[in-house]
């Protein structure tokens, strides 16, 4: 049994202007100790996916269908009490902006100890010792002093280390990290990413890393999925996706990477932008921006096609696979 298996997850927002799909056809698994990258432009639904796994969507969002199986138990239909025993305990989450994540009126110590006491029957003294030990693990200098400080007394990088320490408090099975370095200074982004990688490897924690940076995904993860307008459009082993992207959107993301740019020339950004949920076009959501768009792309939602170890939602890829198969048959027939 996979540690986490998401099946046909569908999330909707009940907006005043009507119901909109935020996520559709979400299927993936996460094994113990595995690292999965979730990539996509801003607005693709990555954060919504992160929150739905903990069943933490806030109004007007809700899980409209599908299953989120954690060790075989479906989080989508679990009681509030059972969910609480999993959140922060078996699955923890790291947010994007450490300036906003910590409560400004509570000390670091309070915010760590309360998490331990919520999940374990231990004394306040023991809880403090565990908290201090975790602060050391994330290389916080003089943890005793930090323990009694308030968030505003610490730098952004320091705060994100503390958020990571809180995420690790209960030695969880899964950490969902939602763009954990995006809000940080460029100079410390790599530092924090290395720290996360080190801690996940050492403690055999599965990591679901949400990011818009394919570069980070290629360095850190073994599996990856690319999201566009609430749908996974390509998923599979990271190496395959990076070396041989099939979907035109993934190819576009690859070409936009700074490493791919010819020095002195502008980056090859994909033209246009992601549509808002209310205005997702019919057919393939990417079709207005796709240079290979065909007629069928404007009317029919592309199904998933297997290509190597990957699944790709694109009519073009499906067509090419069919042609390949046909060519092979002709060859065999000869």
């Amino acid at each position: 049994m996979a540690l986490l298996e998401v099946k046909n997850l569908e999330v909707r927002f009940g907006l005043r202007s009507g119901e909109v799909h935020a996520l559709r056809d979400i299927n993936f698994t996460l094994e113990r100790g595995e690292r999965l990258g979730v990539v996509g432009e801003s607005g693709a639904g990555k954060s919504v996916l992160g929150f739905s796994i903990l069943n933490l969507l806030s109004r007007p969002g809700y899980i409209a269908g599908g299953e989120i199986l954690f060790e075989g138990r479906n989080l989508a239909v679990m009681s509030a009490k059972e969910l609480r025993s999993i959140r922060g305990n078996r699955i923890s989450m790291i947010f994007q902006d450490p300036m906003m994540t910590l409560n400004p009126v509570l000390t670091i110590g309070q915010q760590m100890v309360e998490c331990l006491l919520a999940h374990r029957k231990i004394s306040g003294r023991d809880a403090k010792n565990i908290a201090l030990q975790k602060l050391k693990q994330v290389y916080i200098p003089s943890p005793e002093k930090r323990f009694d400080q308030y968030p505003h007394e610490l730098s952004g990088g320091m705060r994100q280390r503390i958020v990571i320490a809180i995420g690790l408090l209960m030695d969880p099975d899964i950490i969902i990290a939602d763009e954990p370095t995006t809000a940080l200074d460029v100079t410390i982004q790599a530092e924090i990413m290395d720290l996360m990688l080190e801690l996940c490897e050492r403690n055999n924690v599965a990591l679901m890393l949400i990011t818009h940076d394919l570069g980070v995904v290629s360095q850190v993860t073994q599996q990856a999925m690319v999201m566009y307008a609430g749908r996974i459009i390509e998923q599979g082993p990271t190496r395959e996706i990076i070396n041989d992207a099939q979907h035109p959107y993934t190819q576009g993301l690859m070409n936009a990477l700074p490493q791919m740019a010819i020095p002195g020339q502008r980056l090859n950004q994909i033209r246009g932008s992601m549509p808002p949920l209310q205005k997702i076009p019919d057919g393939c959501a990417f079709n207005p921006r796709c240079e290979y768009a065909m007629e069928v792309c404007q009317t029919q939602l592309p199904d998933y096609t297997s290509s190597g170890g990957c699944r790709v939602a694109c009519h073009l890829v499906a067509k090419m696979k069919l042609e390949e198969a046909a060519a092979r048959q002709i060859e065999e027939a000869n």
Binding site: L54, R87, N89, E114
Partner: peptide, 18 residues
């Protein structure tokens, strides 16, 4: 209640009362 730190508190599995 809409703030990130309250969402984070939920993600930590704290009791609603707290």
């Amino acid at each position: 209640l809409q703030s990130e730190y309250v969402k984070f508190a939920w993600a930590k599995g704290l009791a609603p009362r707290r």
